[in-house]
């Protein structure tokens, strides 16, 4: 298979290039001895800071001493082969891993300077500040309106119906969905198309007024047109929120993000400005991955 061709198509499972597959296989499955992250993992004035984060599932270590910053009003893309730990790491940022009983997190993750894993931190307001959009659109079996109003209602953000209407309205506008659904707010959210459902989930996350939005492969279940719309939306949302996106599609990472982090078998190999990662990667593994030599 042509290397450039596999780069061009946003493959979810890029195919190992013919010719050096044995070598690629070895690179993919053997951890580099040098575990130091290269590039620029830290930024000035970060929104979230992660220092020496280890994640274990039972005895198995899934994330190994990862340190990285999430900058203000920028999109951080996390790429890497399947099973490299990028989704696990993403779920640490709003403590969604708490729901997995065998999962254990060490190290420090802070939001605006406060350690989110500290015993005094309540996970409920944390998740209101760090929202999340999932791989598969998961609207609730409720009306479109109730889906968006869900967060504001449980957090008591509004005093009356008008304020709630206003939040639903602005959230749907920000999510680029208002024009499509304004006449059928009372219809079930599950009746929308896949792309609309995913934007509804984004509107639902926005409605709570988060500071950071985590996106776990938000477009992998969508067709190209819906993907383009969501990507456009991410670019707009950046002006108000900090966004961390996990993606398998390298094209997508290069289109929507300002910084890109490359994960490999639980290690953070390289972080840098997206342009630099995709044109002049500093690490051999990064280069092999983005040129499609393994996936």
């Amino acid at each position: 298979m042509d290397v450039t061709a596999s780069r061009m198509t946003d493959q979810i499972f890029p195919i190992v290039a013919v010719g050096d597959s044995a070598e690629a296989h070895e690179r993919m499955h053997v951890r580099p001895l040098d575990r130091k992250t290269i590039g620029s993992p830290f930024v000035d004035n970060p929104r979230m800071m992660c220092r020496d984060v280890d994640v274990f599932y039972g005895d198995k270590q899934a994330i190994n001493k990862v340190s990285i910053d999430v900058g203000q009003n920028q999109v951080l893309a996390m790429i890497g082969p399947s099973g490299c730990g990028k989704s696990t790491f993403l779920r640490c940022l709003n403590r969604m891993n708490d729901t997995v009983s065998s999962c254990r997190v060490q190290g420090e993750i802070s939001l605006d300077g406060i350690d989110i894993y500290h015993s005094s931190v309540d996970v409920v307001p944390l998740r209101a500040r760090v929202g999340m959009v999932f791989q598969k659109p998961n609207p609730f079996p409720k009306s479109i309106y109730d889906n968006v109003a869900y967060g504001p209602r449980i957090h008591g953000l509004t005093r009356d119906k008008n304020e709630l209407d206003e939040i639903v309205h602005t959230s749907l506008i920000k999510a680029g969905l208002w024009e499509e659904v304004k006449d059928r707010l009372r219809e079930p959210g599950t009746g929308l198309s896949g792309g609309q459902q995913q934007r509804l989930c984004i509107a639902r996350a926005i409605a709570v007024g988060p500071e950071v939005i985590l996106m776990d492969e938000p477009c992998s279940a969508l067709d190209p047109i819906a993907t383009a719309k969501v990507e456009e939306l991410i670019a707009e949302l950046r002006t108000q929120f900090s966004i961390v996106i996990v993606t398998h599609a390298m094209q997508q990472a290069s289109r929507v993000s300002q910084r890109t982090a490359y994960f490999h078998l639980g290690d953070l190999i390289e972080v840098g400005p997206t342009e630099k990662i995709f044109t002049n990667p500093g690490h051999k593994l990064t280069e092999d991955y983005i040129t499609g030599r393994f996936g």
Binding site: T99, L126, R127, M132, N138, P139, H155, A205, V208
Partner: peptide, 15 residues
């Protein structure tokens, strides 16, 4: 009931 429903709600800060 799919776990994704629960995740969606928990991720919005619901108890």
């Amino acid at each position: 009931v799919p776990q994704s429903m629960r995740d969606g709600s928990l991720a919005l800060g619901a108890t």
